[in-house]
Each structure stands twice: as C-alpha cells, then as structure tokens.
Nucleic acid binder design. Structure first.
Lengths: 350, 350
DNA sequence: TTGAATTCCGTGCACGGTAACGGAAATTAT
DNA sequence: ATAATTTCCGTTACCGTGCACGGAATTCAA
C-alpha cells in the first residue's frame, strides 16, 4: 500500500523557498551557500526526514566504482583459491549497482611482487581495497598511501595492529586453537599429540598459526597437563620428504593417535596417513580446501575447522561497496567469523 | 580503468534505426511491435550485449516493491524469533534498493489465524512472499492463489511437495538426523539413548522432526544395532510435568547417558538435566535459541546443530527482491543450508 | 559613485529508462 | 475509392539528482 510518500530534493527546495541547486550544494556541502540558507535547508531536511534517492544519485553521477582485491595468487586447491571464489559471489551482487571488482594477485613468497602489484592496483584508482596482510612493512606503507588518498580498505584473514581500516573479517585465531584441541581430544584422555608444521616461510611476517597454536597449547595445558606434544616439520613442496618424516616419526611413536595441523595444509599429510590407516586415530585440520574435504569424506581426517574465506572477502567487498556508494559505515570494525566444524556428516552442503 | 562502455537503450535504437520507445516495448515484450522490428532489436541486443541500467529503470518506474514474510508468531526465545531476526538484516540491504518488507505473523496452533493473516497479506499486494509451511491444506490454497496472481514465493524451514515456488531454503532434514546421531555417540559405543519428544501438535501437518528422527534411527541401526532407544513425551507448556516425566524416567534408567531432542526445544529439558548433572552425559539438540546456547555455555548441552534460520529468511528475501527488481531467477530452486555444529567453544561468534 | 570582484543562487541539461499519447502506415470494412 | 480500424512506431514528459554555467546581489576597491 501507498508507502510513505517519498520526499525529494524539490520538496525541501519549495519548503525553504530556495532552488534545488542550492539544496544540492548543502547536501554535499560544497560551499557557495550563505549561512542562513544552509541552516534553513538543514532544518527542512530534519523536519521532512529527507533521504536521498540512491537510484537517481547513482544514475546522475554515472556510477562506476571500482573495488580492488589484493590477495596472494591462488595456486590450485590453496586457501587463497577459496578466498578468490568469494570475489565472484560478491561481483554478482554488486555489478548490478554499478561496482566493478578487480582481482590483483601477488606471489606470497616474494615481496617485490607484492610491491609491483600494489603499485598497479593504485594506478587502477579503486574506490576501495580488500587486503590480506602478508608482509608487515609493505602492508603498512600501502595502507598509509591509501589513507592519504582517502581510499578505504578492509582486512581479511588476519590484521595488523593499525587502526585506519574500515573493517576486518576473520576468524578468532586464539579461540580456534582452543576449539581445535577440544575437537581433537573429544573429551577423552589423551597422552600424546603430534603437531605437523610447515617449515617457516621466511618472508611471511603475519602468521595466523602462531595464535592458533597458542590457544591449542593452553587448552591442552589446562585439560591434559600430562600430555606429551611432539612437533614434526615438513616441506610443503616435497611430498617424499613429508612421507619420510612422518614415517620416521610414527615408527618410533606408534602409540600417537592424535594428529593436528594449524594451517590449511593437512592434506599434505593425507597420503601417508591414508596409507597407514588406524581406526583409532583422530586428525584435525583447518580450512575447507577440496583436498581436505576429500580426506574428510574418506575418513582420513576426522574434523576440519572452517572459516569461510569466501564469505570474508564477500563481506569485505559488500562493506566497501556500501561505503563507496552510500557512504554507509559498517556497524563495527572487527567481524569475527563463526568457526565451522566440519565432519563427514555435514561436509556435503558446505 | 575505463570500464566497458555501458551501452544504452539509445545505442540499440540507433543501431536498428528505430526509436527507444520501440526498443523499450520489445524489452518488456508488451506488444505493438512488428515481427521484423522485434527480431532486429533482439539481434542488436545480443550483438551489443545490452544490459539494462537498474537505477534508471527503478527511478523511472518509481521503485517500491513490497515483500511479505508470513511465519508463525515469535514468542520470546522461540525458533521463529530467530527467523524473524533475519528480516531486519535483509531489510537493511533491500530498502536501499526500494524494497519494503512486511512481517505477518500468525498463531501456529490456529488455522483460522493463518487464514486471516494470509488474507491480509494478499491485500497488501506484495511482489513476493516468504512462507514457512505449517498447515498443508491452507498452504496449498494460498500458493495457488499466489500463482494465479503471478506473485512469486519462497519456502523456508521445510517445503511441501509442490513445485511452483521460486526457491526453498532449509536444512537437509534426514541428513541432520544422521549428523545428530554421530555427534551424540561421538564414535563411542552406546547402549541406550533417550529421545525426548513433544506431544504432537494436532494441527501442525508439516513436521521437520519426522525426517530428522528417521535419519537418526537409521544411523543408530547401522552403527549400533544393539542400542536401546527410549522415548519420553513432554508437554511444552507444563514445566512441572516435564520435570516429573524426566525424573521418573531417569529413576528407572539411571544408566542412560545419551539424550537427544529433534526440535528446537532442548531447553525445556535443561532445568531437570542441570539439577541432576552427570559429567558422562551427552546431550544434543537443535537450533541456536538463546536458551539453548546458554545451556551449551554452562555445559548442560554438549552440541547444538544449527541451521541459521535468519540466513534462510534473509536469502529468501534477497532472492525475491532480485526477482522482483531484475527478474533474475535463482541458479537453482532448492538450497540446503549447511548444518552448523555448535559447542561451547565456537558458540560465541555465532 | 562607478567598476570590479565576490558571494550566492537559480536554470537547465544530462543520466538511462518508462509509458502515455497521438499520428502515420497498413489493413479491413463499406 | 473512401472511411474506419488496426498495427506499429516516434515523440515527449517525466523519475530524482548532480553539476556546469551564468546571472543577480552584495561587497570591496578606486
């Protein structure tokens, strides 16, 4: 039924005896208006409860915003591939409101590539940027540049200790370690746990697994202070070495039945684990990579903890789009995503 | 960078040597166009890849769509309160594109109230309707009416066996019973299980718990064929009777440590369970009602399985809005939501 | 007091599409 | 052949804002 009659810029022009041009000037406070007129207009806006018509506005100024997404290149089946998939989802909904999205990728092991791509990104003149902070120093200088240019930006996955960002979307890392420990032990007494770790990437300076491991260890300390915790390091690019490392470990520790990994690469351990099955074993990993989910289905992995990276970039893009188009600020800056528990029984509809 | 030059209705008018009026007529195929012109325009549209400008369109036809949500009244802390909260979320994003949402509530125990409210809803002349089917017959006649009037509608929560709906958003019910059983047993041998049930609502003809229970029982049959399964019925409006029923049951079956409930009301059992704690007990329920989540936090309930009812109505509304505004059909009709596993360790950020 | 410089404001076109209106062309009826 | 319809199409006035342009009113300089 007849919704509240929309009041337009003309209504408040008539009300104040001024012209729409003047009203428009105060709305976008771009000067050339006398104090008296300014006050009158503001008052009328209040009283009539004027709200601009987004369509007309966008139509008039020819829309076309651009949002840039700057994340590591997504090798097949990697974590960042999942994140990248959120771009398409967001694109589908924001292109209809005149927003384009450009995806910039860099090599997460190469600072120079980050610098270069960041430069290109700036040249594209975006109205907003989605960032995954990998290199601390570089991220800092980039965000400074963005701030100077007045370009809003959002962090996903993790965030530095700065404060100028528009919003952050990510998983509560420390808590995720806790949850992980709880899922691994399943309330049963546990005597020993194996943590599989990737040899530290030299360049990566912002590493989510640090906090996660801290949470995990705290949980274990509190609940199973006697539990022995072993670490095995593997090289992500060398399957044979991985196989050998695990093989060596389990030969000397055949009693260890709880295995965990704090990054998205539990699938690297799957070939060995699958070849040496143990119905009593419990394996917990992170992130819903295809390879990980397959391992869930075939029973090699017991539980995955997911954080919906695609939702993270989707939300970041939506937030930037709303800000760019309507100037709307998000209700809060930090958005901690729900941690999804995935088992073979609920992985299908994920 | 210079985005693809938007091609307008005028471009294709020039291209075909016709006027924009004619082009508009074929775009909305409202007749009064010769076959030859029609074909020419269609071809030009294809070739140039024309896409209408939503803003201009909405501006011209004065926007203002209305979407109606027809779900049971949300008594405090009920399942439907969660669903209703999705309305606000959706409202925030669609009002900016000129869509209003009206919320109609009926008494889920009173068919007449459904009829009355449905009538009122139709009078409001919505461009789309979100429905939770409760009364089979009534739902059927309502959807027929909607179909006749050409009003699209979406189901949430559950759906009847019809086919005219635009989309459905809900949990895979049978599977959720499976998941529930897996979470309840946690891979351990289980000898006996208690199912707490609500005495059948006489009127409710579409009951999600039926399928859920079927899935649960199948899982138990397959994995623990020896397990005894008991049922206790309670009256949702009589806490004392509930207390008594559980008390009686557990006095004669003190060994039963696995308790499950297939609707959203596990919180009804919480007072008893909390008063008679058992660290060995495992309790699984459904839906993230506040009372249920509290029980999760204090340890009375072990696991809740969530289906994001708010997301369901949110998505349903978004889908209807896109259809109403842009005529865009959803990629598929049936959308099965992910089943969230909630424990005390990941309930906070839900 | 007159001319120049400011300050302030109204006018009018553009944005891309919608739909009513009316008229030309083609068809049918008389 | 002419009138009466039908069919088909172009014209035009919006929808609500943004913004450039130019002019009136006011202030300042000479």
């Amino acid at each position: 039924m007849a919704a509240t009659e929309k009041i337009t810029i003309m209504d408040i022009a008539r009300r104040t005896g001024l012209s729409k041009g003047t009203v428009d000037r105060v709305l976008h406070n771009r000067g050339e208006v006398s104090k008296k007129s300014y006050a009158k207009v503001m008052e009328a806006i209040q009283e009539l409860g004027y709200e601009p018509n987004v369509f007309a506005s966008l139509l008039a100024k020819g829309g076309k915003h651009l949002i840039a997404v700057l994340i590591p290149a997504h090798e097949n089946g990697s974590f960042w591939e999942l994140a990248a998939s959120g771009i398409d989802k967001a694109a589908a909904s924001v292109t209809t409101v005149g927003v384009d999205i450009v995806h910039f990728e860099y090599d997460q092991y190469d600072i120079d590539s980050f610098r270069k791509v960041a430069g290109k990104m700036l040249e594209a003149g975006p109205s907003g940027v989605v960032l995954a902070p990998m290199f601390q120093g570089e991220t800092e200088s980039l965000t400074e540049e963005l701030q100077q240019r007045g370009i809003p930006y959002c962090f996903i996955d993790s965030k530095p200790d700065t404060n100028g960002y528009l919003a952050y979307f990510g998983m509560p890392l420390y808590k995720s370690g806790y949850l992980c420990a709880d899922q691994l032990t399943g309330g049963r007494d546990v005597l020993s746990v194996l943590i599989i770790r990737v040899r530290r990437d030299r360049f990566r300076q912002s590493d989510p697994t640090v906090n996660r491991r801290a949470g995990f260890l705290d949980y274990m300390m509190e609940n199973y202070p006697e539990c022995r915790i072993d670490n095995v390091f593997i090289d992500p690019n060398d399957p044979e070495e991985t196989e050998a490392a695990l093989s060596t470990y389990f030969q000397t520790h055949p009693d260890v039945r709880h295995v965990v990994m704090f990054n998205s690469r539990i699938h690297l351990a799957v070939p060995y684990l699958q070849a040496h099955p143990d119905p009593q074993r419990r394996v917990v990993g992170f992130d819903n990579l295809k390879a990980n989910m397959d391992a869930l289905r075939n029973g090699t992995v017991s539980v995955l903890i997911g954080q919906r990276p695609d939702e993270q970039v989707n939300l970041a893009i939506q937030t930037l789009a709303e800000y760019a188009i309507l100037g709307k600020l998000p209700p809060r800056k930090d958005h901690f995503m729900h941690m999804d528990i995935l088992t073979s029984y609920n992985v299908e509809d994920y």
